[in-house]
Amino acid sequence: SPDEMCTFDIALIGYPYPNRIKAIDTLLKQNKWRILVAGKEWHRHLNKSRRHYRDFTLITNWLSPQQMADIYQQTAIVLNPHRPSQFVYNKNKAMIQNMSLNNRAFDIAATGSFQLTDLHPPPTFSSFAFYKDEDDLIKQVDYYGSNAGERKAAALNNYEQAVRWNTFDTMPQRLYEIVKSAL
């Protein structure tokens, strides 16, 4: 999206996991971006004073895939933190760490939108931008927020990589290689 068409500087759609709440709270404290957060339960997890921040939009109702795509395309930076392995409601007794991008990463990439995630992406998706902690999140948002050219180039690479790896033409061969490697 051209900068002048971006309704939001930052958007996050999804459940309010603790790391997502911390990221949004960190960004709201900066008081310098137009932020949209969408998902059930967010209203219960954000400080009341933050919910009344002038440039903050909170959507708590269900969004259709088209509405989500529209939000992604109207946003300069889509934030995509992953569910933490130690989240209390996970059924992850072995505490297996996230090592791959979530399905939302591909949804965001398919819309041609720029995303910032908390996982270092695999080499196949080398153009996905990521942050290490809250201080780095602020630095990355500042950087990509003021470098539209790099943001657009990364979004285009994300789109091309996601489409190249997830089409009916490439999927059968990839599935074959996965099964073959497991034998």
Rank of each mutant, 00 (worst) to 15 (best):
T57W: 10
L58D: 09
L58K: 02
L58Y: 06
L58H: 04
L58N: 06
L58Q: 10
I59P: 00
T60I: 11
W62A: 08
S64L: 08
S64F: 04
P65T: 04
Q67W: 06
Q67R: 11
M68E: 14
A69I: 06
A69Q: 09
D70P: 01
D70I: 07
Y72P: 01
Q73N: 13
Q74H: 10
A76D: 05
A76C: 12
I77G: 00
V78P: 00
V78Y: 00
L79D: 01
N80Y: 00
P81I: 02
H82M: 07
H82I: 10
R83E: 09
P84K: 06
P84Q: 11
P84V: 07
S85I: 08
S85D: 15
S85L: 10
Q86F: 13
N90Y: 10
N90I: 06
K91A: 14
K93L: 15
A94V: 12
M95W: 08
M95P: 02
I96Q: 12
Q97S: 08
Q97E: 14
N98E: 15
M99G: 13
N102H: 09
R104I: 05
F106K: 07
D107R: 07
I108R: 05
A109P: 03
A109C: 07
A109D: 03
A110W: 07
S113A: 15
S113K: 01
F114D: 01
Q115R: 05
Q115M: 12
D118C: 01
H120K: 15
P121A: 06
P122I: 08
F125C: 03
S127P: 05
F128H: 04
F128V: 13
A129E: 12
Y131A: 04
Y131S: 01
K132W: 10
D133C: 07
